[in-house]
Write a protein that binds this DNA or RNA. Sequence first.
DNA 1: AGAACGCCCTGAATGC
DNA 2: TGCATTCAGGGCGTTC
Length: 269
Amino acid sequence: MPELPEVETSRRGIEPHLVGNVIQYAEVRNSRLRWPVSEQIMKLSERPVLSVQRRAKYLLLELPEGWIIIHLGMSGSLRILLDELPPEKHDHVDLVMADGKILRYTDPRRFGSWLWSDNLNECSVLAHLGPEPLSDLFDGEYIYTLSRNKKTAIKSWLMDNKVVVGVGNIYANEALFVAHILPERPVHSLTEQEAHLLSDTIKQILRRSIEQGGTTLKDFLQSDGKPGYFAQELFVYGKKGELCSVCGEAIESVKLGQRSTFFCRNCQH
DNA sequence: AGAACGCCCTGAATGC
DNA sequence: TGCATTCAGGGCGTTC
């Protein structure tokens, strides 16, 4: 399940193969993703890629007339093929480049999307997103100020894209463990000190995970086909019933806002 | 207005 | 062994 570090890992993997290269055409074998693949993408021809950027969990390929906006959804991944390779069942989209390389999109669950935007400022999926977690806009003061008078559970609040982008279930669980904060607490109960600790922790964990090439769970692979290594460093995510590696208490699991939530009652308060 | 829930989809895991 | 059921999840749309 690609979260921000996985998307950033993918971005870094594909960027050097695409920037300065030219898309010859897009081969869309199955356009039925989260939304239908945009017509402008189906009809692409002979367009140079000017940049490969990321906003939240969206990858943005800049072309002269607009942007290809890719979301990996739950199970999407991107690979660079140096030569042709017969597509398999879940290989839904290829961008065939002028030098023979192919950007191949694989997505068994088809929760991802390939959209076109003429103008990013008018793009509906990007319009209402909160700040990037690794930017200076996201800090303890931001969390503290925005969280006053709100009684939502802290963890659900962190996963709200209007609050901050790119913090999904894995990293919300991990960050709250490292910051010693119980996920169920109402967000208004955060102290100023905890708010600062939380923003610092989120940044630290995301940076560390990007260094490790993301978290490989299920089928996530980096664009070179190698797995990410951050899964080895998880403290609580997916560890219900296992013993906390810090104190030895059993990791508990509850549902918060329909999402699996893992924590150590001894380490988090 | 803000919060909660349903839905899209398929593979892996679990249950009988 | 094999079939049926359950679960996972990001984010938009709808409902309360």
